[in-house]
């Protein structure tokens, strides 16, 4: 994992430096001395490898530097403020996606081919058949204006959290449903289920106690990357619902070519993703019936 982080850091660092247009390119045509003074302040006058080692040392110390565009803040500060917001939104969205997706997936797997299966899978597929800005726009129209249930936007109460979490979770709910369905069907064909069924256990017991834990494995491994995605990639939802999460920083850093911010975001994403994958591996121990817990 550390190796991955280092590789990603190094590649990103050099890629961003190689790209045309330095960070102060955006500002005005400055005179030689003035420009040099500013470059000196940001250590841009040093040779590239010196800059690299300095940056790496800072990162190891946990100092991510200053963004070039949001001038009053530090990258650490931006992440410190944005991450809890994104995490709360993302967790809720995933909780929603999990509960809906699992129910839909299990139902449709146990009643395969029935109208209920087709219906549920149709519903689930709609979640991934429309761009989420469309889903969000329609949801606002319905639940804010036609039936005034929720506030239009903002951040600071649970009430404001519901609609964005639903919209953010919708495509993931669909994914979870489809994965659950497939893996449930897979598990049904395995020997231990047939044994359990042969023992004369009730259908519900077979499904919930014997089939589900095994079928959950692919869902859990899907959750790893999905968590990283909802934490950082929720830009659309954040914009529409005016939520001060990380997604907008993430995308805007790329759009504005804010190198320090961008590097910070990339590294954050990589760390989160690696951690999540680690957690997924650990949770296999909890879920996989073949692994015994001490």
């Amino acid at each position: 994992m550390l190796l991955t982080l280092w590789v990603v850091f190094t590649t990103s660092f050099f890629l961003m430096r190689a790209v045309p247009g330095g960070p102060f390119d955006s500002d005005r045509k400055l005179d030689g001395e003035i420009k040099k003074n500013i470059e000196r302040r940001y250590h841009l006058d040093e040779p590239l490898e010196m800059q690299y080692w300095r940056e790496l040392r800072n990162y190891l110390r946990g100092d991510l530097g200053y963004p070039y565009k949001l001038q009053d803040h530090t990258v650490n500060g931006v992440i410190r403020e944005g991450l809890p917001v994104s995490a709360a939104l993302g967790l809720l969205a995933l909780a929603f996606a999990m509960s809906l997706g699992l129910v839909a997936g299990i139902t449709s797997a146990t009643r395969r081919g029935s109208p209920a299966d087709v219906m549920l899978m149709t519903l689930a597929t709609i979640g991934i058949a429309l761009p989420n800005f469309v889903v969000a726009g329609l949801a606002i129209l319905c639940f804010v204006f036609l039936i005034p249930l929720f506030p239009a936007a903002g951040w600071g109460s649970f009430h404001q959290l519901v609609l964005p979490a639903l919209c953010l979770g919708a495509p993931h709910a669909a994914d979870v449903a489809r994965i659950t369905r497939t893996s449930m069907l897979d598990v049904f064909s395995q020997d231990h289920i047939r044994t359990a069924r042969a023992k004369g256990l009730s259908r519900a017991r077979v499904i919930w106690c014997h089939a589900l834990p095994g079928a959950l494995l692919p869902v859990v491994s899907y959750l790893g990357p999905a968590t990283a995605y909802v934490l950082t990639g929720s830009l659309v939802i954040e914009q529409i619902f005016a939520i001060p999460g990380l997604g907008s920083h993430f995308v805007e850093a790329a759009l504005q070519r804010d190198y320090t911010m961008a590097l910070g975001c990339v590294m954050l994403y990589t760390v989160i993703l690696s951690t999540m994958n680690l957690l997924v591996d650990l949770s296999y121990a909890v879920l996989d019936p073949r692994v015994e817990l001490k």
Binding site: G137, I140, V144, F145, P148, P151, A152, A153, G154, Q239, I240, F241, A242, S248
Partner: peptide, 12 residues
């Protein structure tokens, strides 16, 4: 940033 959101907030 989003204009529609801004108006929605005013309208509500």
């Amino acid at each position: 940033n989003s204009q529609v959101t801004v108006y929605n907030l005013f309208a509500t």
